[in-house]
Design a protein around this nucleic acid. Sequence first.
DNA 1: AGCACGCCGACT
DNA 2: GTCGGCGTGCTC
Length: 843
Amino acid sequence: MARRISVAVPVPGLDLLTYSLPDHLPQPPVGVRVLVPLGKRMVTGCLVGPAPEGPTDSEDDGPRVRAILEILDEHAYVPEEVVHVALWVADYYLAGPGEAIAAAMPPGAWIESERAMAATPAGLAECARLTASSSGATDARLAVLQALSSGRTLTVASLVARLRRSVQGAGDPAAVLRAAKSLERDGLASLSTALRGRPSAHKTHRVVALTAAGLGELGRVGRVERAGRVGRAGLTARQREALEMLQGVTEGVAASSLSRRAVSPATLAGLVARGLVSIRVERLERDPFESASDLAEDRQERPDLTDEQTAALGSLTAFADRAAFRVALLHGVTGSGKTELYVRLAESVREAGRSVLMLVPEIALTPQTARVFRHRFGSRVAVQHSGLSDGERYDQWQRIRRGEVDVVIGTRSAVFAPLGRLGLVIVDEEHDGSYKQEESPRYHGRDVAIVRAQHAGALVVLGSATPSLESYRSALSGRYERIVLERRVLDRPLASVSVVDMRKEYAANGPDVVLSAPLCDAIAARLVRSEQALVLLNRRGLATAVFCRQCSTILDCPNCSISLTVHTTRGTAHRARCHFCNYSIAVPKQCAKCAAPYLEHVGFGTERVEAAVREAFPRARVERLDRDTARRRGAIGAILDRFRRREIDVLVGTQMIAKGHDFPSVTLVGVVSADVGLGLADFRAAERTFQLLTQVAGRAGRGVEAGEAIVQTIHPGHYTIRHAVRQDYPGFFADEIDFRRTMKYPPFVAMINMVVRGPSLGAALTLANDLAVRLGEHASAGGFRVVGPAPAPYTKLRGEHRAQLFLKGSRRLPMRTAVRAALAGLGEGKRKVTVDVDPANML
DNA sequence: AGCACGCCGACT
DNA sequence: GTCGGCGTGCTC
């Protein structure tokens, strides 16, 4: 019987498929890409192993098995270990194996077929006739024919693009395809399926260098010139200039740089023809650090370790030396020097001949960490994150794959980096929410990192000042090693935190207070001393809602069940925008419902805080950093750099300003409202608030001067605020873990969250009910409970209505099995269901 | 996700 | 009558 292989194809919701391997092809290893037929298409798949043998093999009622078309790689493209991790992800998070493997591949790794079409001779004639008679009517068929009138074969995609530009209303892909089919029926055009051009594997450039003959010629020219005679016949002045430019640059000069210096292609061609220069094609590495700037600034000293750090490093190194799977939680207060520990540990692992994977929440927000690693490991480090262009990402991925690096630093998707001999995985700020991917496959970078380390027999270090409840509990129970750093480096004290009870502030100064008197005084003091301040409000915009005083209507998004946020707009009237779907309108003058002209802005965001700070301190240099000001690529880095260079006195922003930055001159952190987020219908609301407050307070006092944090709140007695103010993690943990235990939330139960979408809430609820019933059948045997369905917290998003239900249970396996069975029973309805295993965000 | 099939309303 | 909208189903 023909050899059968199991292939993952990049199609959501499709399971592994079985293909046969034609006799003439060699047996490829796991991880190679194969080109396979799928329906009418050709797609790239990834070989994950031999096909499972089942009883259906002998019967004819199973799906037919088609033969693969081509093996695209000689050696594994995705390392086998990573294939297995990806398959684990697909299984655990209930995603398609193809989607999971796709997450492990660089951009451009998937080749697919494309439909193309060309006019037949009859079609060309018909086109000429129709064009001449010019009926005037815009007919999609005619438009397509005209586009094909050159006789060339065009892809359907390029036809669509072309028609979208030229013909109104004809650029819809479906319409083009229909027109194409209709033309094919009439024998006027032919449709074919062809492979899309393979992605260029590397960016290349041409390098021009002198040949030996050229070098000789140059010497001769020099002597001739000294002798006062005209250059040798046949060498033009231009050619001589070009030769001189190349003199002394043995490695050659990029052709693009020559052309910038006015060396024409013709000149170059003349020199090549004479054999005086050679042109070679060279692979160009796009180094993300070059554009990230200021490598020169990186002359950092190697800081001495504190006793506490030395002890921690000792234990971690000992674990790493055992070269066996292990998880250690590094619980270190902000400013305790975790990064330096990571670097030293990485160095020792690397010296032992094993590689290091370091995950960080968002590189754009923590460029220092990346820079420290770059500085210590030079070209042996690669960076992977979403801010890179596809080409940059591809280059980095290939460098890792070729074994040219042994340290990878990246965001969550880097957990799949094709590193061999993995010895250490570091997850910095392991509690950070950005490790959870909010689209399929909905994996948690930290948890996948642990699984990967398990496969590789590596040490995992989870670092945080505010560990997730899950990790801390595991550390307390002894499942993880626990290493604590209680002191800041150089014995700098933690910021002293004080609370302003905003209820009193409102009573005294009215309900419109943004900056309390104590916070204003504190900012003023910093300005006098030329120190810097951070002001945090984790909410964007000018106002959170527009409210009609007469009929109490709130301006809602027509597509989503949330109110519109008011944003300032340069020049024009303020706009009200939806933070989900981006719908926006000019803020109306009167209520759309009752026509009353009494519209009020309620609630406020960072834009209002920025305005308030500017108003209170007209001479201060105030900037804002949130998703709105950070939209442009590189804007985050630019603002943070200016702040670091002390060109900004007060930086207002959302949580973006709270992450691991190190600004030595910041001595004040103001939290405008610590309550944002506390009231959310999410069991992690308190944990996230505590983390944010602790994190941002940690930004103060990292230099010589002591730091201070001022927290404004209307809930000064809330346990989250109380513990955050004292920066008392164990205290917070004790209270929060009680809440989780009582309410049966993680880490005491496993959860799977499901959102069902539908054209109406009724439709969504009906389908959700069907799902709930099917799940219920497995509940008692599986030891879990089905909660819901109910309308989701955001009932409507982007025009879709949503119902939610979730499972709570003690063991994940039966829960996952039940979900899989229930979804299968739903048939095609399953396309309307999103499944989230271990949800990080319940909204 | 594509892609095809098939079943209903508005135009030649 | 057909064109063309999108619900439903399938892909080894």
